[in-house]
Design a binder for these strands. Structure first.
Lengths: 255, 255
DNA sequence: CGCGAACTTGAGGCGTGTCAACCCCTGTGG
DNA sequence: CCACAGGGGTTGACACGCCTCAAGTTCGCG
């Protein structure tokens, strides 16, 4: 890797854009190239994912109406996606962490249908969509993976529908916490204290609740010994107890 | 095509499975093959859509856990799709009418993740998924169309999220009615009296409301002169008034 | 004609939203 | 290093929208 002498700020950018290779990425088992052969992976490296983009906390990756050119895979950090109707109502449609794809909602119309905002300092891999379509006509493994990812996004949304349509406040918050820890564990994070990256208001927006209701749910869980909450530090001390609040259901996998 | 002598009930089945051709279908402008060339359409006819399946009112097309083999395009009639968690909670995730695709949620896991039930006597075109993937590697137009459809399904779900997460009961019902009439009009139905195919309870399940709440919303709309409701016959007399209930927003396109 | 399902309407209670006060943490500037 | 401002979070009191339960009506169908 060549490493020219540059000022720190540019150096960071430069380093980020070097060495973008799915085949070396430790997310390859949870990201786009799940289950692809070595040979196919190399084609992906060469033709598909060549750029990585860093974002500061609060920075917008894309917003409603932006022309759609690429999908983005979260490489580091986390994001929220917000949708809004023109009368000012708005809502967070999901939180994305490492290995998850952003931008799928832009394919249908050629324009992004949501805002994507970094919740912390983050980096995304840029996947130009025309290249993705071209390569997935060539590689069946890539084609199947893309279809699976889109389908799972639909199933995830249906899970949120179920949550918003039929669960009470405490059930929603419990489902949210369990889902979060499931996803973190799947990515190899220790499931001990979780550092929330979003505010109570953002959690509430996602769950269709007011921020006070979210806060009260946390407090009650704390009082019942289910979790230890301190600001954004959350430690689940009784996962089974939280699960029981959901009627024993485990259908929290896909939020 | 051979036409054996059979009893009427089987004959109906047989006739239904003849003459399945997207190129002749009057839904081709709203269904899977939107915008495809004549030549590509013929390949679709030959290799992809060869079977049509009739269903009686209340009959199940597929249910949760069934192996996923095919997508289904609604040709006639309408469907509901239901999701459920194992503690008995369940919810309708959508209503599908002519030209809309069923089964996208099965791609990711190889098993259907919802129940699809006919709301009236209906027919669907069967689209074997392995054949769809194979042909869409060959035809860019088909590939793009599939991606667009899946993306729009995601956007639609996000619209429902917004509805469930941020709207009051009457707003939800108003959005539901407007969305229904939009879709019917797009399919060439006269937008005068609409015949609902679902019960109040089903509407409520979809909107995250109790059936009584839906009924009361209808009654109030009636009293305000916005609609003329008589059982399942609904006539929107003041679309602009309904729209105003949504804060003037027109973000109802994608329910 | 009579039964059951679907629908309507009313009364009352509960869960959240709303509003408000207060606290805690962080970061900034003197 | 401390003071202070401001955003984020917690907690309480109250109101209100929707759920729940119940009774009665209409429609569809055998």
């Amino acid at each position: 890797m060549n490493r020219p002498v540059v000022q720190p700020v540019f150096r960071a950018l430069h380093l980020a854009s070097c060495n973008v290779a799915c085949s070396d990425c430790n997310l390859r088992e949870v990201c786009l190239p799940v289950g692809m052969s070595r040979a196919d992976l190399e084609k992906v490296d060469r033709h598909l994912v060549t750029e990585r983009r860093p974002l500061a906390r609060g920075e917008t990756l894309f917003q409603v109406g932006d022309p759609f050119n690429a999908l983005y895979a979260v490489w580091q950090g986390s994001f929220k996606t917000c949708i809004s109707s023109r009368d000012g109502r708005d809502q967070i449609s999901g939180f994305q962490m490492a290995g998850e794809l952003l931008g799928l909602d832009g394919i249908g119309s050629g324009r992004h249908q949501a805002d994507a905002v970094a919740l912390e300092a983050s980096q995304v891999c840029v996947i130009p969509f025309h290249a993705l379509e071209a390569l997935s006509r060539e590689l069946q493994s890539l084609q199947q993976q893309l279809h699976r990812i889109m389908s799972r996004e639909i199933v995830r949304d249906h899970g949120v529908l179920l949550l918003l349509g039929s669960m009470h406040a405490e059930e929603r918050v419990a489902a949210f916490l369990l889902n979060l820890t499931h996803r973190l564990r799947a990515r190899g994070f220790p499931d001990s204290p979780v550092q929330l990256r979003m505010t109570r208001e953002e959690i509430g927006s996602f769950l269709g609740l007011q921020l006070e209701t979210v806060s009260r749910a946390f407090s009650r869980f704390h009082a019942q010994g289910l979790v230890a909450v301190k600001h954004r530090q959350v430690q689940i001390t009784d996962p089974a107890g939280l699960q029981k609040l959901l009627g024993g259901s485990e259908a929290t996998a896909g939020l």
